[in-house]
Design a protein around this nucleic acid. Structure first.
Lengths: 124, 124
DNA sequence: TTTATCACTATACTTCAGTATAGCGCTATA
DNA sequence: TATAGCGCTATACTGAAGTATAGTGATAAA
């Protein structure tokens, strides 16, 4: 029952704190999908929207702003007429790649799992 | 501007779908902290609560139920008087370890980053 | 001329995550 | 006897996330 009961509390909090930071920044339904869309190349507002089923303009606009504030993405305005706005990942944003990769890996195998057993699939 | 414009949309959705699955299951402020707490050993209700600052009984109870439904954790009741309830990670729950590890890594370096530059730190 | 696209913003609304507080039956301890 | 711990549940509430819908001004296409 007790595995190495030494400094568990500290080590536990030492894990929970950074993870909480991360999930706060990536929180919500849309931020990761947006980042993924931009992983596949710089995109304009409407192109991102096309990549992400069901997202509304309002949400996309709001989330892009937050991601930009956290310096995960960059917004570039070209003064064409009318203006062209392009979004791209920053280097810092790219540092999330391994996180996204692991999430995708897990999500894929989870999907397989719930597909194969109908009993729990019924709940979803 | 355009990097390999072939099947981007499909590959993009192929990433977004599993990641959305994952974030739905791990959604919210508390599920990952709870899983982390259980990574450090089987625990009882009040022990988990002690590990996670600020969580309320109601939330802990609710999230534990959801994690159990998704088979990420296991609830065992021992018939002592009064009953002892122990929570533990399932093997399936352990499959999340790499995800949690990457999140923790990123969170730690993010924390360092915002600590070092006060200008953006002001916002947090 | 009407329509559509672009990158948004405004307003209003719903829904749900999360908080706050209290209480349950049981038991061991002071 | 009263208090505290255990593992919760009940009720009520707030606030934030997300949805729905419409509209902006400029331009280009039908």
């Amino acid at each position: 029952m007790a595995i190495k009961e030494g400094r568990t509390q500290e080590r536990c909090t030492g894990m929970i704190l950074p993870v909480s930071d991360a999930i706060q920044i990536l929180s919500g339904k849309w931020k990761l999908p947006i980042l993924i869309s931009l992983q596949f190349g710089n995109k304009r507002f409407s192109e991102i929207a096309k990549n992400i089923p069901k997202i509304t303009d309002r949400m996309l606009s709001k989330e892009l702003r937050e991601l930009e504030m956290n310096q995960l993405i960059k917004r570039t305005v070209y003064d064409t007429v009318p203006v062209t706005v392009e979004y791209s990942m920053t280097e810092y944003g790219e540092s999330l790649d391994p996180v996204i990769l692991e999430l995708a890996k897990w999500g894929r195998q989870h999907r397989k799992r719930i597909m194969s057993k109908d009993r729990s699939a019924a709940k979803y």
